[in-house]
Design a protein around this nucleic acid. Structure first.
Lengths: 217, 217
DNA sequence: GCGGCGCCGTACCGTACGGTACGGTACTGC
DNA sequence: GCAGTACCGTACCGTACGGTACGGCGCCGC
């Protein structure tokens, strides 16, 4: 009766520590695959069929549909975090490289089928009350990358390479220069071609523009 | 049987010329209001009740649910277009003012409850095939403003105030500097406070940054 | 006045889907 | 061997919602 995975709870932060079992991970991967392929036809029956498990098991593990979706979003989020960056003895080349890496990684993420499908789902649910999928996606997307980029920006400022008053504002400018209209166009179904080369060029351009605005050289 | 409003048709562009009758406009306004208030509880029953009309009439006028939604999106889009801008004899003050005005107007639009609700709906539908709501929203949002800003940018270049090779790239940079993370955060349900003063400051900052990157003075 | 029309309100239908129940099967500990 | 457990497959239930049918009423042309 009680789901053995953490149900979303108002007091619990958006990042859950518990990892699902291997079988559960397979189920969540099935959800992700189905989400990408079928869009909004994400029925519990379809998930059970795709994952070769019974609906009863789904409900036992995840509580209800929202629990399953929440677990899926968390599961996907748990795979995105990566990368550590030098923060002291920063020179301009390293700073540029770090920012470029952030930008390219971020573009890859938001351009991926999985991210698009996940964001669509979360945005759809953001309209109704209950089940804070949007909050989870934000916490693990926009805000997570913010918390990882801002130390780099501040290290750049400490090293005399960047000049800004408010770190948050500087980061949001960086975010805008990188993302531009890409995410909204993809979410709305625009077939925006974005291969690896394009991403690298976009990331480079964004970093150069950011340095032009905030660089001190 | 046949809906007397233009049904979406693959060959028809995303901007329909026909205007709905006054009564139909009232119905579409009811849809918009309901969309904002109830989020995804947008049932045909609720619309009929809210608009004090019968479901039969809804189906007669709009064909089916998608037809109603499409008509609603078009109806909202038909109210957004506005503003004419000087393109010749451009000086830097006028250019700055025009861009600032574009930025502020755009921010007001994407921050409005109606836009958020409409974009959520269109994004939700972009996942499934059928009914190109996403395309309509894109055509009347992102692309419409692009077509209106780009002549201003080119006029600025012709007047020797701006320097860029590709207008589209320059516009996308402008778009990113203005929008930053605002739209995605609002769509995902973040309670981002954005009053008129904030919008004006944001627009001003975006324009200054854009001029710093592309200005020639 | 009257037939026809357009529309409101409501009752109704079919289906899709979230959620539950249950029988059958494989595996594990004793 | 056997009880217990975990889980698969499937059948089932209730409800919400898209779509249709129909009675009634006001309005317009004649």
């Amino acid at each position: 009766m009680q789901p053995n995975l953490a149900r979303q709870d108002e007091t619990v932060p958006e990042t859950a520590p518990e990892l699902p079992s291997a079988r559960q991970q397979a189920v969540l991967d099935a959800v992700l695959a189905l989400m990408v392929e079928e869009g909004d036809q994400l029925t519990m029956d379809a998930v059970a069929r795709r994952a070769s498990c019974s609906k009863e098991t789904l409900y036992k593990w995840f509580g209800d549909r929202d629990g399953l979706l929440t677990a899926t979003v968390r599961w996907q989020a748990s795979r995105v975090h990566a990368g550590r960056y030098a923060l002291n003895a920063l020179d301009v080349a390293t700073l540029r490289e770090s920012l470029q890496d952030f930008a390219a990684t971020w573009l890859e993420v938001i351009a991926s089928d999985t991210s698009v499908a996940l964001n669509r789902l979360a945005i759809g649910h953001a309209g109704s009350r209950k089940s804070n999928l949007g909050g989870i996606v934000l916490a693990n997307g926009r805000f997570a990358i913010g918390e990882r980029v801002k130390p780099v920006l501040e290290a750049g400022r400490a090293a005399g390479l960047l000049a800004f008053d408010d770190t948050e504002t500087a980061f949001r400018t960086f975010f805008g220069l990188v993302g531009r209209d890409i995410q909204i166009r993809l979410l709305l179904g625009d077939a925006l071609p974005l291969d690896a080369g394009e991403i690298r060029r976009d990331a480079g351009r964004a970093v150069e523009q950011f340095l032009a605005l905030y660089g001190r050289a």
